[in-house]
Design a protein around this nucleic acid. Structure first.
Lengths: 224, 224
DNA sequence: ACAAAAGTGTTGAGAGTACACCCATGC
DNA sequence: GCATGGGTGTACTCTCAACACTTTTGT
C-alpha cells in the first residue's frame, strides 16, 4: 500500500504574530495578500517552509522579509492543523510569535504581499484563514508570559525609562498599574540598572534611562 | 516551477507523552518499536496522521490503541521539526501530552509496537529519535501547569483522598509539601467536596473521599 | 508661572510558611 | 497495644495594594 493512500502528506507553513508597541499601542503586523485564496485580504506574515529549512529559520526569514527585523524574541506558539482551515487543501501551520522593540520595524512589501501594515489589536480588519484565532492565541500567550518571565522586555529599546516598561505591561494587559508599586517591584528584581543620560526633548521633567543588566530569559516568581 | 522543487512537503506525525501515577510514582508510557529505524528501541506512542484526520483525534487514536484509554486530558505540547530528527527524511511531529487517571491504563501491543510499558521518569531507557527531549518538554509543561491550573487533577480517579491530591503535586514537583498547609489551600479553592464513604482496606485510619465539584478547567492564582 | 510627567514612603490586609499532637483503624 | 497514616490550629513573615505630594523641565 502506498504511503499516500492512507496517510496525509500535508503542506506546512509558518505564520508569525509580530507584536510591537507603537504610539503607546500594542500592534501586530499584517500583510495584504497578493494571490488567492483571500486575495487582498489581510493575513499574518508567513509562508511555506523550504527544503532543509529549520522551522524557526523560516519564521525569522518571513519576519525579515516584511519588516527588516533580524533580531527579535521568537517563540513557537501553537500548531493549527484543522482540515478545513485552508481551502487549498490540508495545510498545517506552525505559528510563532515575535516581540520586536519599539521602532525597529521598517515595513516593506514582499513577493507575495502587496502591502504590510501595523494594526492596533483593538482595530483588526477582516483576516484570512483562521488568523484571527491565531492572533488570539498569541495575545493570550504574551499576557500569561509577562506575568512570570521577563520576555516582554524584548519590546523595549536598548535604553528605556521606567515609564516605558510600565507602558509595556499596561498595554498588554489593558489595565492601569500604580506607578510607585510598579517601580518598587521592577527595581527589586535587580535586572535593570540606571545608565548615564536622561530622556530629553519633552516639555517636562526628564526621565532617567535604564538598561538591562542581562538579556537572558529569566523566570520570575509572579511578577505582574 | 513545481511546488515540490523549492518547498518541503514533510510527513507529519503526532507523538503523545502520557503521564500517569502508578505505585506513587510519576510514569510515562513507551512502546517498543517493531520496525526500523530504531527497531526494538523504546519510543513515544504516536504515528502518522491520516487523511482527513484532525490532529487531536490522531493523538487520541494512538493513545487508545496503546492503552485502551479513551478519555484523558489532552493538550498540544510543541511541534518538533528539526531536519535531522528522523533518519527517514523530513518528518515533523506535533507532540501532545495526556494526563490519565490512576489505574485507567490497560497496556496492549499494537500493529507497530511490540510491547507497551510504563516507565518511571527517573528510569527512562534509551529512546528513539528526539523523544527524550520531547518528554523533557512535557514534564516541564506539566510542572508549570499545575502551579496555576487544576489540570493535574486529571491524574486522579473519580473519588480520591486529600493525600492523593498532595501526592500528585509532590510526585510532579519532586518535593515534599506540608500536609496542613496543603489541605487548607486546596479546600479554600472550593473546587472539591467531600462525598460519602471512606478509603478502606488499609491498616490505618480510613481517609475521607472527595470528588470534584466541576471538571472544568480552572485558572488559579498561583496554587502550588 | 504654568503645564506635564518624574520621582518618592508608609500603612494595612491577606497570603504563605513553619510547626506538633491526637485520632481511627487493622493486625 | 502498637504501627500507620489521617486529621487539625496558631503565630509569624512577607508580599501586595492603596494612596498624595514635591520636583524638574519646556514654554
Amino acid at each position: 500500500m502506498a504511503f499516500n493512500s492512507k496517510f496525509e502528506t500535508p503542506k506546512v507553513t509558518v505564520d508569525i504574530v509580530v507584536f510591537t508597541i507603537v504610539d503607546k499601542k500594542l500592534k501586530t503586523l499584517l500583510v495584504r495578500r497578493k494571490y488567492p485564496p483571500f486575495q487582498d485580504i489581510w493575513a499574518l506574515p508567513g509562508g511555506f517552509i523550504r527544503k532543509h529549512e529549520e522551522l524557526p529559520h523560516a519564521a525569522l526569514r518571513e519576519l525579515k522579509e516584511e519588516t527588516g527585523v533580524s533580531k527579535a524574541y521568537l517563540e513557537q506558539l501553537y500548531t493549527f492543523g484543522e482540515e478545513k482551515r485552508d481551502p487549498r487543501g490540508r495545510i498545517i501551520t506552525i505559528a510563532y510569535f515575535a516581540l520586536v522593540p519599539k521602532g525597529h520595524i521598517r515595513l516593506k512589501a514582499s513577493h507575495d504581499a502587496k502591502e504590510a501594515r501595523l494594526f492596533s489589536l483593538k482595530e483588526l480588519p477582516r483576516l484570512a484563514f483562521d488568523h484571527k484565532k491565531i492572533i488570539g492565541y498569541g495575545l493570550t500567550r504574551v499576557r500569561n508570559k509577562i506575568q512570570y518571565t521577563n520576555t516582554a522586555w524584548s519590546l523595549l529599546p536598548e535604553k528605556f525609562t521606567l515609564r516605558e516598561i510600565q507602558e509595556v505591561y499596561e498595554k498588554i494587559w489593558g489595565k492601569h498599574a500604580d506607578k510607585r508599586n510598579f517601580r518598587k517591584k521592577i527595581i527589586s528584581l535587580g535586572l535593570i540598572e540606571a545608565v548615564k543620560g536622561v530622556q530629553r526633548g519633552l516639555k517636562q521633567r526628564p526621565a532617567k534611562l535604564y538598561s538591562f543588566k542581562t538579556k537572558k530569559y529569566v523566570e520570575l516568581r509572579r511578577f505582574f
